[in-house]
Amino acid sequence: MEQQTPNKYVTVAYELYTDNDKGIHELVEKAPIEHPFQFISGLGIALDSFESKILALAEGEAFDFVLKVDEAYGPYEQDHVIELPKETFAINGRFDKDMVYPGAVLPLVNADGMRFQGLVLELKDNTVIIDLNHPLAGKDLHFKGQVVTMRDATNEEIQALINHEGCNCGGDCEGGCEGGCGGHHHEHGEGECCGKHEHGKGECCGKHEHGEGCGCHK
């Protein structure tokens, strides 16, 4: 009988770089050693390609690798830019102009109940243009960092994460998910977490989840 690979509790400190439109290598995200990115392997929290590279390392080991577009968030797809009626974003019959404006990132939900985020590109007279592509779609992701923790996850940690489905596990998993972007503490303020976001999967049913945070990891 084949022995099942145990789930690993992993924390990593890293800097994430991508090339911008001008070909300049820029920092888009940082998870410092004081507040590392935390995940449990095998639960779909992190990108499969990211997880496999990290699991091949030992605690304390440094890493420097690039995930190509197809290993990361895939190509940028124009089909994931959609137009929704302004009524979708109405509160008590009035368009929510305080929250919905060009550049705003909005939590949405599709017909299957899957939550994801959309970037407002443009407001028209009666509609809103939303980009459902992941912010890092079409980009190679260059990670530099260090494995801070690598050990078998406890049953309690796994169960705590399942109980808080949709968030990364914060701290030692006993206190639930931390606020912000899935428990991350970003220092650069741009880009998204390296966890697996399900942007642009399926058509949006036009439901706007007012007031929700960005913890939309799979």
Rank of each mutant, 00 (worst) to 15 (best):
D125I: 07
L16W: 00
D21K: 10
E122W: 04
G103E: 13
G103C: 08
F89I: 12
Q78W: 00
P6M: 00
L55P: 08
P107N: 07
T127Q: 07
E59M: 06
A56H: 06
E71A: 11
E34R: 14
K53A: 12
V81Y: 04
Y9R: 14
P32G: 01
K86W: 02
G44Y: 09
D79W: 01
D125M: 05
V66D: 09
A104L: 02
I91F: 10
L43V: 04
I82A: 00
E122I: 04
D98R: 14
F89K: 12
V100Q: 03
S52A: 15
K53Q: 15
D48A: 12
V120A: 07
K53Y: 13
P36G: 04
E61M: 05
M114H: 03
P75W: 03
N7C: 13
A56Y: 02
T88N: 11
Y76A: 09
F95K: 07
I82G: 02
E34V: 10
V69C: 13
D64N: 15
Y76G: 09
H25A: 05
K30I: 03
F50D: 05
L119M: 11
D79V: 02
H25F: 06
N126Q: 10
L57H: 02
E122F: 03
V69S: 11
G23E: 02
G93Q: 14
Y9S: 07
H35T: 15
I54H: 03
L119I: 06
E87C: 02
P85H: 08
Y73I: 07
T127K: 07
G74S: 11
D125C: 01
